[in-house]
Design a protein around this nucleic acid. Sequence first.
DNA 1: GCTCGCTTCTTAATCAATTCAGAACTAGGG
DNA 2: CCCTAGTTCTGAATTGATTAAGAAGCGAGC
Lengths: 353, 353
Amino acid sequence: MERVTLQTIADRVGVSRTTVSNAFSRPDQLNEELRRRILQVASELGYPGPHPAARTLRRGRAGVIGVIFTEALSYAFADSYAVGFLRGLASVAEQSGTGVHLIGWPSPDAAEEVIGDAVVDGFCLFSPEGHPLVETVLRRRLPVVTVDYPYVEGVPFVGIDDRTAARRAAEHVLDLGHRRVAVLGVQPVAGRTNRDWLDLDRPGDLRFGAGRARLAGYRDACEAAGLAWSEVAVDRTANDRELARQAAARLLDRDPRPTAVLAPTDEVAFAVLDVAAQRGIEVPRDLSVIGFDDVPAAAPAGLTTVRQPITEKGTTAGLLLLQPSRNDTAPCVLMDTDLIVRRTTAPPPGAGA
Amino acid sequence: MERVTLQTIADRVGVSRTTVSNAFSRPDQLNEELRRRILQVASELGYPGPHPAARTLRRGRAGVIGVIFTEALSYAFADSYAVGFLRGLASVAEQSGTGVHLIGWPSPDAAEEVIGDAVVDGFCLFSPEGHPLVETVLRRRLPVVTVDYPYVEGVPFVGIDDRTAARRAAEHVLDLGHRRVAVLGVQPVAGRTNRDWLDLDRPGDLRFGAGRARLAGYRDACEAAGLAWSEVAVDRTANDRELARQAAARLLDRDPRPTAVLAPTDEVAFAVLDVAAQRGIEVPRDLSVIGFDDVPAAAPAGLTTVRQPITEKGTTAGLLLLQPSRNDTAPCVLMDTDLIVRRTTAPPPGAGA
DNA sequence: GCTCGCTTCTTAATCAATTCAGAACTAGGG
DNA sequence: CCCTAGTTCTGAATTGATTAAGAAGCGAGC
C-alpha cells in the first residue's frame, strides 16, 4: 500500500494539494462543505495528518525546545534538583504549546550527533559542568540559555551566586563554633575532569562550574574565620547517593572525626546523614550537616541547607528561551538564595552552649 | 545574511551538493583531502550542520520517541511513579541513541495538535486514564506501546494486574483483623471523568484505568472477607499530595474513625500519614495505612505497600517500542507485584494481639 | 589495446508539506 | 453593463537535505 500524502487525497477528491493543506491548517481558506469532504476522504484513506517533519522544514519552526544534560538522561530523573528545574521549565513551555525534548547521551562521543540531530527551536544547557559541548550547541545557531554554568558572553544565563551562597553556609557552621570541618566536593560523573579539579587556585576558578564555586565559597569562609584550608578535610564525590555514601564514610571514619560536614548538594547531605545513622553518630549533637539546594525532601528531613529557587530557575530559563529579549545584551539572571536553618546543625560537642 | 545550506558550501568549494552531504554523513564516500576542505569552508561560513528536519523528512526516521502524559507535563516530574518509569525508559532509549520527547498539554484541546506535530518514530502512552486520545495517537500510524491503560487490541501493552494486586493489599489489612476500613480512589486531575466513576458495576469496569481496577480489587477482598462494600468508607481524590490531604482529612474525621486506610498510590498514603500525624493519630497503633507502587520514598518512610517494578516497566516499554517484535500478535506484558509489609500496618486497636 | 573494477564525484529524483501570487467566479453598487 | 471587492481555489516555487544511478578517471590484468 502506498503512503498517503496530501497529494493522494487531492487526487481522490479532485482538488489541488494546496486546498487539502488548507483543509488541515487554515480552515478559513476554503468552503466548509468542501473541507468536510476532504477530511472525510482523508479519514477513509487513513491519512495520518500532515507530516510533522515536512511541516517543520517548511515552516522553519519545530515547536519544541531541547534540554541538554551532561550526564546520562536517566540522571535527569534521579536527581531531584534536575526534576524540580524541569518542572518549572515544562510549565512555561506547555503554556505556549511548546514541547520539551530531553537530550542526554550514553557516552560523550554521542553528544555531537545527538545535538546535531535534534529537531528543536532552541536549547537549554543544564549545568553541563566539565563538558566541552557548549561549542557544539552554539554551532547550531539557535537560541540558547545556559543554567548554572557556564557563563558565555552573549548567551542568556540563569544561575545563582554559588560562591557567596556556599560561603554563607560555611559561615553558619563556623559561627556555631565548629573547627573540625569536612567538605565534600561534587564532580560530574561523566565529566572529563582532571586531577586538578580540587586545586581552587588554578586560573579560571569560577568558570569551572557550580561544584567548584561552592568549594571556593567554603574556603572563603574558612579562611575569613581564621581556619586554614589545609586543615579542612576535603574529599570529593559525584552527586549520586551511593558514591556519596562511600565518600561520607571516608570522612566520618577519620580520626579525629569532623564535627561538621559541608555538603554541596542536599543529595550528598542525605548520604552523610545515612552514614552517620549507620555509625550511630547523633545529628546534630555529635555532628552537624548542612546541604545545598533545599530540594523537596530537605524540609521533611529537617536538613539545614541553602535554598535556591529551583523551579523558578526552570521557569526563568523557559521564558528566556521562548520570549527572547529584544535587548542587545543577553540577560544574565542571578537568583536569590537563603540559608534555611533546620535541625541538622548545632554547636559542636563540648561547646557548652 | 543568507542562510547557509549545503548548496552554499557546494558553490563555494566548487563541488556538488551531494558531495558536501557526503562530507558530513558518509565520510567514506569522498577523498579525505576534499572532505577537509569542505568542512573547513563550512566552518568558515558558520554552517550549523545538516538541517535535522530536512534530514528526518528524507530519511523517514527521527531518532526520537514520544512519551505522552495525560496530565500537564509538569506532573511528570512531580510524581515519583512517573519519574521512575521515565528513568527506565530513558535508559534504554539512550542506549540506542534515541531521544525522548515528553508530550503533555495545558488543556485537553491542545492534545490533538501537539500529538500531530511531534517529530517522533513512535509513542509511549503513559497511563492516559480517562483521556480519549488513544485514537488521536493511533491515527499517526506509528508504533505505539500503552502503559497501564488502556489495553487496545493489536497494541503492545505493559502493565500489572492492578485488581489482583490491590486485592492482596486489602487482604493483608483484613487478615490483620480490620473491619472499619476506608478506601481512597485516585482519579486523574484533568480527566473527563463523570460522576459514575465510583460505580464499579458499570460495564467495562476494568477498562477504566488502574485507579478503578484497584478499587475493584479492594472490593473483591472486602466481600470475600464478608465485609459489605457499602460499609466501607469510600472517598476519592487525585494523585496530588494536597488534594489527597483534604480527602484523607475527610476520612479520618469520620465517626467512628476507620482503623485502616487503603491508599491506591504511595503518594496518597503519604498524605494520609501526614494528616494522621497532624491529628496525633499514631501509626500503626491507632491506624494502619497501606499504599501502592513502592516508590523510592516508601522504604525510608516504612510504608507498607504493594511493590510494582516501576523502572522495569519503563525499560520494557522502551524495548517494545525500539525493537518491535516480529510476531503477529502484539505483546502484552504483565509484570509481577509483591506485598511489602513494613511499619504502617498492624492489627487494629483492641485486637489483643 | 581492451576490459574490468575501483574510487571519486555529479545529476536528478525524492521526501511531504507550506505559501505567495494570481485566476476564476460570484455578487453588489453605480 | 462595468467595475470593485470578496471568496474560493490553483500553480509553482520553496524548504534542505538524502540517495540511487551513472559518468569520469585511472591503474591492473590479460
